[in-house]
Design a protein around this nucleic acid. Structure first.
Lengths: 132, 132
DNA sequence: GATTGACCTTCCCGTGACTGGAAGGATTAC
DNA sequence: GTAATCCTTCCAGTCACGGGAAGGTCAATC
């Protein structure tokens, strides 16, 4: 398979596939013409990576997941630990976003949003956090 | 004021303050020795920027906010629109994170997390989204 | 006056995970 | 034979800084 076929079948852009090879996530063969020659196993790995990335795992986490996936002697506890750490990361991000939202929402709710210049959002940003 | 003083008083690292000057967010004066000479107004702007960044506004949004802040003829509607767009951005991110969390949580909940290799998380990543 | 130490300056490189584009070679279709 | 579509590598840019080097300046002390 050439890169365009794997791109279509994996749903990943060709650029991304080249990048994944460059950073050592996959190791496709090479044809006599210098073209990458992808096996089914490469396609499989790329699909795996695409799904892991889609769940928000970083590239390094994906690398570890892939290593675990290929390690027949793995302990599922190791996979679970990785996944739970990532769940916790996401939870932290959500909490942070919610906190920012709450502050900003409060400012927005006090803003008339008309043609006049008076704006609690700007004074809130200028004079300190949530002064009311 | 030298950069270290403004850094302390604004809570921003000196590196960040230099960067903000480089991209034209602030324009401190220069002393005869080449040192940046910050006025109170510069400090004020930096504090404003720090708070806006803390609420998750991008640098370009901060630039627009600062321009509105300095424009005495602004309409508060413009500020509010910017802030509401940002609220919506954050909401989208939260929804996306929640969706990823839900899928991963489901996989994690089905994983024994023991010393055996069988792992629904890995098979879930390998064989497609949420097949059960 | 010399020296130390803390400050300041600019410059360049690295981050994460790609994306865009240029320059040039290979293959396929007609 | 040639045009279109592939493929390759390499370079640069993204965002918002952070680390660190090389070198100039300032204030206090000896």
């Amino acid at each position: 398979m050439n890169i365009k076929d794997v791109a279509e079948r994996s749903g990943l852009p060709a650029k991304t596939i080249r990048y994944y090879e460059e950073i050592g996530l996959i190791h496709p063969l090479r044809g006599a013409n210098g073209y990458r020659a992808f096996r089914e196993s490469d396609l499989h790995k790329l699909a795996f990576l695409g799904r892991a990335r889609g769940l928000g795992f970083t590239i390094e986490e994906c690398r570890r997941l892939l290593a675990l996936y290929e390690d027949r002697a793995r302990a599922s506890a190791d996979v679970k630990a990785l996944a739970e750490a990532h769940l916790a990361d996401m939870e932290r991000k959500i909490v942070e976003l919610r906190a920012m939202q709450a502050v900003l929402r409060d400012l927005v709710d006090h803003c008339a949003g008309d043609q006049r210049p008076d704006c609690p959002i700007l004074t809130g940003l200028a004079d300190g956090p949530a002064c009311h």
